[in-house]
Design a protein around this nucleic acid. Structure first.
Lengths: 136, 136
DNA sequence: TAAAGGCTCATACTAAAGTACCAAAGCGGT
DNA sequence: ACCGCTTTGGTACTTTAGTATGAGCCTTTA
């Protein structure tokens, strides 16, 4: 919050300076008026872009990226992660097995390990947790 | 695509006119230079905001809103929808029952109806489908 | 008021999911 | 070559999930 106030303060100060400079430049005729107008236009264009992006970041959630570090931190192996993806696609253990060319038993082992690593009791809970920590 | 070209064409035309007008206004001294500068600033500020919003809509996925019409179209009742939310929270049938103050049997009935309405074989698949059609 | 649909709940099954253990093959690092 | 870890797979068992069916209650609507 303090940082926000600081940023806005500096922004307004900068704009005021630019404003005064422009007025002076135009009146004194040191610079071509076209140049000054273009400068103002460009600066405010980017200010608009910046503020809009800021506000979007604040109000709405931007698309999440997968947190690979978290996956490592939780000690989730490649195979286990592939199984997790299968679960998120709504597949049964049997179907995941077919997809990964392993037996249902193997998938069950992976799922069981996955659940304890994610601290979940059910596969649906695992999905919820996985989404929450951005690993899916 | 045609609409986009038209919009951009008009936008550029408008900005050029504004630009010429500003130059003329400042040189002829009809208007105060402060006013002209402020006008330019405001216009380009909003142009920046507008273009940024446009590009965000195009490139990245914007947060999805729940498609209530789809829910109705699929004939999903209030209670069934509440059960669906419970599933998405990773709860068991028993836990959903506790949350909604009904028995596990009731939840099972709702889940079963939900699955057939969503054309899913499992609750995880129901989640995947529900997310896909933006009802969750 | 009778029909219809939603909500509730139960019983009785079947089918998945999940746990616990064990075991063997394979691989990268020391 | 040995260690540790992943991956694989099996057996046996418990727990959830899901299906089918029937039934009672309530509210809305024809």
């Amino acid at each position: 919050m303090k940082r926000t106030i600081l940023v806005f303060g500096l922004l307004i100060l900068g704009l005021l300076l630019l404003f005064q400079f422009s007025k002076y430049a135009i009146i004194s005729g040191d610079l071509k008026s076209e140049f000054t107008i273009a400068l103002i236009a460009v600066v405010f264009f980017f200010v608009g872009v910046y503020l809009n992006k800021k506000s979007l970041h604040k109000s709405t959630k931007v698309l999440k990226e997968i947190d690979h570090k978290k996956i490592e931190a939780l000690d989730i192996s490649k195979r286990e992660y592939e199984v997790l993806i299968g679960i998120s696609e709504g597949l049964s253990n049997k179907e995941i097995g077919d997809k990964l060319f392993v037996s249902e038993s193997t998938v069950k082992t992976h799922v069981s390990n996955l659940l304890s690593k994610l601290n979940a009791k059910r596969r649906t809970q695992a999905l919820q947790i996985a989404k929450d920590i951005n690993i899916i």
